[in-house]
Design a protein around this nucleic acid. Structure first.
Lengths: 221, 221
DNA sequence: AAAGGCATGTGACGTGGTCACACAAGGCGA
DNA sequence: TCGCCTTGTGTGACCACGTCACATGCCTTT
């Protein structure tokens, strides 16, 4: 967070000088934690590139349930905006800032100009696209072929800190892996009973990494 | 199918003359029905554009179950290849020709050259990307928020001929909407019992379009 | 007609999602 | 400090779905 104004596009790898110069004329936007960047049905204002912070993009179901599509990290862009710019469609998902975030919004015409003039920018956009696409396919694969237990174990393993503690509520875990909170409650109980984790209000602690890995790969039992 | 050799790139909308000329130097490939264009783990040979026919791209689960990711129609391209070209990753899905198909394979270097030189080609590729992305998000939405019954009704409505008959086996329907065959059998029975469709070996016939539409929109009952 | 391969029907059983709660743990103002 | 509210959790009942293990049936091949 202690960055100067002029270096903010350094976050973006592989960009050529002219593009970088153009981007540096845009002032970054500060977004507080919890802010909603866009929601379903909203029109597209431009192409968004994250500079710092963490933004989650969720798909919202009719009954209030939602599922995490992907997370946007610094240097990455939010694909939803690209979809809108290219296809003219509106957003169908909602993006929320999980931490305070800083980002640049590239207006529509600047975006297209860059796309035509800067090979580096093209690569950036394409790369972001390809990456998101892969992760969406991964998501489909997970949702349709992996058990809730396996997805939960995976979540615990890769979002927990080095101390083996995961600070999330059951509701948050539920949306992260696309299931209902009650299911998380029961699964967590089961995993605690078998000794692989411990859990209390707002935090899950890993007790047996091997066991969790076995659950993830379907090798449990 | 009665097309001359020189006009095959006419299928591709919005392409500029130089790009068209370059593409016309590539000879199209004929693929018989049922052929597998690529499978999981295979390396990427180039960017593929369909000229005629129908290709389905499926994600394959570990237990043999599979789910239709998207269908590629003439003039569209197969995104899987693009992913490979841009991110260097291998295919994670399988593409099969549902009808005899004709397509051009654009080699890796030609693809990148075109991307740099032809705005029309860029738009084509981007557009294809955006479209696939949208439909993948749609798929995620359907799989995680819609009932099997609703997805089945939707399938019947938009794949049936003008005579209201859908010629598919239950197994095919199952993979098309990402469920198991037995479930299709039971749902079909239920829908037949309520009078919205009739079904016999290999064919489902629509009896009551309104009822099906109600099921799709969740307004049933 | 016999045989084999598909397409389909069915019961049993486990998992997952939904509903309708009850209960517990902080937070906060009166 | 006592309520009171918000938020996080536990639970039982019930239905929808996926899976397994079959039992038919239908259609083609020989």
């Amino acid at each position: 967070m202690g960055m100067s104004w002029t270096e903010h596009t350094d976050q973006i790898a592989g960009l050529d000088a002219p593009a970088r110069a153009l981007l540096d004329t845009l002032s970054p936007m500060e977004v507080p934690e919890g802010a909603v960047l866009f929601c379903p049905g909203e029109a597209v204002k431009g192409y968004v590139v994250m500079l710092s912070g963490q933004v989650d993009v969720n798909l919202i179901g009719p009954n209030g349930r939602d599922i995490l599509l992907y997370r946007v990290a610094p240097g990455q862009s939010c694909i939803q905006s690209t979809l809108g710019l290219l296809g003219g469609d509106d957003y169908t998902a909602e993006a929320t800032a999980e931490t305070p975030a800083r980002l640049v919004l590239i207006p529509r015409d600047v975006f297209f100009a860059l796309l035509d003039s800067s090979p580096g920018f093209r690569r950036l956009v394409f790369g972001a696209f390809a990456e998101r696409m892969q992760s969406m396919m991964q998501l489909i694969e997970n949702v349709s072929f992996m058990s809730v237990e396996a997805r939960l174990a995976a979540l615990i393993l890769d979002r927990s800190g080095p101390d083996g503690a995961l600070h999330m509520t059951q509701a948050e875990m539920a949306t992260a892996i696309g299931t209902a909170r009650e299911v998380i409650s029961r699964r967590l109980d089961k995993m605690a009973h078998s000794g692989s984790v411990a859990h209390e209000r707002g935090v899950v602690t890993i007790l047996d990494r091997k066991a969790l890995n076995a659950i993830v790969s379907g090798t449990a039992f």
